[in-house]
Design a protein around this nucleic acid. Sequence first.
DNA 1: CATTAGCACTCTTATTAATAGAGTGCTAAA
DNA 2: TTTAGCACTCTATTAATAAGAGTGCTAATG
Lengths: 344, 344
Amino acid sequence: MSLKDFKERQNKILEIIISSYVNTASPIGSRTVSKKMGLSSATVRNVMADLEEFGYITHPHTSAGRVPTDKGYRRYVESFTRLRSIPKDEARHIEEEYKIRRKSINDLIKKTAEILSAITHQTGVVLFPKGEDSTFKHIELISVGKKKILVVLVTSAGVVENFIADTKEDLAGDAAVITNLLNSECYGLSLTGIKNMLLKRIKQERDSFQLVIEKTSDIIESILNLHRESELYLEGTSYLLAQPEFEGKEIARLIREVFEDKSVLSKLIEQDLGESGIRIHIGKENKFPYMRDCTILTSGYRIKDELVGRLGIIGPTRMEYDHLIPVVNYVSDVVSKILSGLVE
Amino acid sequence: MSLKDFKERQNKILEIIISSYVNTASPIGSRTVSKKMGLSSATVRNVMADLEEFGYITHPHTSAGRVPTDKGYRRYVESFTRLRSIPKDEARHIEEEYKIRRKSINDLIKKTAEILSAITHQTGVVLFPKGEDSTFKHIELISVGKKKILVVLVTSAGVVENFIADTKEDLAGDAAVITNLLNSECYGLSLTGIKNMLLKRIKQERDSFQLVIEKTSDIIESILNLHRESELYLEGTSYLLAQPEFEGKEIARLIREVFEDKSVLSKLIEQDLGESGIRIHIGKENKFPYMRDCTILTSGYRIKDELVGRLGIIGPTRMEYDHLIPVVNYVSDVVSKILSGLVE
DNA sequence: CATTAGCACTCTTATTAATAGAGTGCTAAA
DNA sequence: TTTAGCACTCTATTAATAAGAGTGCTAATG
């Protein structure tokens, strides 16, 4: 038998083990594989021994079937040379979900996490970074009470943010004027750009702008201090916890460490922010200990041609990679298309 | 022994059974109670038999201790004549959480669900209704692309909503003018108010407003169709699922039916919207079948003197009522205070 | 030489039986 | 009215056994 055929058979058997294991969550014996291959169980056992020697599968104990290792899943997903296209009805289903599409970007992003979770039955996740470098398109000050100003910011991408700032004086009467001035001066500038501009202006006294700066120093400070941290939308965490591999033991820990404090997960996903395609982190490949039985599967999404964030799912390492990879990819395409459509 | 003393002893024993059961999640025997009461176990058993006869506690089986029933919990919580004040350090802890307070109302509400969950170790929930009757304070149209207008709405309560609307013509040049017109005409009106005003204006031709209506018919339609549904923020669903009573069996069902489709929960909580104080729904008192082992504990929160929504927790019926009721109450006070402060 | 049949061996899981223990309810005594 | 005492019931635990799944190795086969 040629080396190529040999490898091919290994792949085939690994594939059967994985796809069976994904469904049953219990070790796969040689007989199970043999039936699906038309090979005797003895032959299969030989191949299995090889696969085990190279670390693609293991034994929970002597008389149990085989279970894929992280390395095994890795080999499996690497073997996908090109993305399978997703079934028509599933595509339609996704489109359908987006029909009743929320019309603001914030809503769209949040809804996407829900949709991902609902169609994959895994935990859906969307990372929406807010860089220091996003530029302002519009700013609006609205008086909502004595010495209370509601600040509404719109970035060039069409994202709306708002907060209420306290001011020293009551600016109710001046809100419109100041709004106009700020708009004309700040349009198109980034956060750091605004900071620089203001510093420069403050130096050259006797500027018509000086008055505004004085009156609105509190607001301006609030804007500059606005920590525009990345937002991470998680939806359907219960799917993950319902998996048999997480029964009982360390669930509480996993929750607290991973889901409660989203910063860990954010960091993990942010690593791939530069990448545009599908990225998969399997089990212990995530250095984080409580994630050792989880896989993070994400794809980048775009506004126009600009890569803005990543979306995907978090599930047990034992997930349907062959099915879920195309789904996540498809959703990221749909989201990119909608986002791009919203701003032009 | 007088009837009053008799009832009092019943209460005391019920209280011990409940507080023990809350901690251990396993039936409480007469000996356990006896030790905490200085009464013999035989006497306790007599009282227990009475309590059982009236349906306040049950027997899982002959030789097991007693377990409180929904009716028992109900009697227990009704026995709280006034709210226990919460411990100082806990109060400080809550204040602390709100120190890094998000400055927009939307963020505050969302953060509150997280805080509730974190401090109670239950599922936190906040209902934020958006009535048809809330009035508009400000509207802003911002061009974000050809034939794309970003509409930003601010309600009198200071809540900001935004969406992107498609228009027939490109309105980039007119955005500012239209914004001004809409603002002056719509200020202080409710959604239905705006609808009426527009209909009236459309009838009387040759109105200066006519032009605007024509050009912005798409936007206006979007605003009118804006289904301002109540928002329900749920945080920490995993706490509920981690409870021993939900081990294994119908978890998946509970998730899908209750947490995924938030409308059920919304309805349940909306029933108490008129009520200002603490409201508790114990077990089967929630008619919804999958909630029969859960308690919903909520308190109303206010902006100024106006009741706007409800916040609280969802947990197993076996929860620390004596501790959690004051906590939820305290949080609702803090939130009310902050909300009121934000708008004046 | 790759494949397969056969068999002894290992370890898990399910089943059964036996025992210990927790808790009750009732009766009679204090 | 309270309590001590006791028989009784049911659960939970433990141990022993049996059944079963699956392996690895060897020898036979095409």
